[in-house]
């Protein structure tokens, strides 16, 4: 009668993984002045808030790693994270066998498959973390973006009023963001 053997099989699965997620939106900017003037105002305001501009795109890296990119002329904003990393999982299993030749390719394949499943799970776990980080950043950004739009619109209105005539007074309600400009035409 043959005897059973218990063999330890260890397989390491490595994969280079690129994780990427993000979301895009339009900035709803009222075109009070000609488009290129509004673009310039938007770029100025974003620069004031720590964005670096290059080639018409304003970029800022957020705490947590999310990157905010604004295509200023197109009024489009993208918030995303892209990371590339090497993931590695080692799986060790005790395999019972009646064969004397030791670890076979079939044993290794079984353990390797388990390793790949665990790697997929690890990847998905990291993806959820990335998505949650972006989502948290977007929630925090909403009010800042609203503020950017209000500031840009107010400045555009001031300049437009100045083109129409002599500005007599400007009253701003900081709470509501409303602006009252009196112009002598």
């Amino acid at each position: 009668m043959s005897r059973p053997y218990v063999i330890r099989v260890a397989e390491t699965v490595r994969r280079h993984v690129v994780l990427e997620d993000g979301v895009e939106a339009r900035l709803d900017v009222l075109e009070v002045l000609p488009a290129e003037d509004m673009t310039a105002l938007l770029e100025e305001e974003l620069t004031r808030r720590g964005f670096a501009s290059s080639g018409g795109v304003a970029t800022r890296v957020e705490p947590g790693g999310a990157v905010v990119r604004v295509d200023v002329a197109a009024r489009k904003i993208h918030v995303g994270i892209r990371e590339a990393k090497d993931l590695e999982v080692t799986v060790e299993r005790a395999v019972r066998t009646y064969e004397e030749q030791g670890v076979t390719d079939a044993h290794r394949a079984t353990v390797r498959r388990e390793g790949e499943i665990r790697l997929d799970e690890a990847r998905e776990e990291r993806r959820r973390e990335v998505t949650a980080a972006i989502e948290q950043r977007v929630v925090d950004l909403r009010s800042e973006l609203d503020d950017v739009v209000v500031k840009v619109t107010q400045e555009a209105l001031r300049r437009r009023a100045g083109q129409l005539g002599e500005i007599q007074s400007i009253e701003e309600d900081a709470e509501t963001g409303s602006l009252t400009i009196r112009v002598r035409v």
Partner: peptide, 18 residues
């Protein structure tokens, strides 16, 4: 159109305040 093109609550893309 603005609703589904934005980050706002109305689109349902991004969750609410945390």
């Amino acid at each position: 159109h603005r609703e589904v093109s934005s980050f706002g609550h109305g689109s349902g893309i991004v969750a609410g305040e945390r």
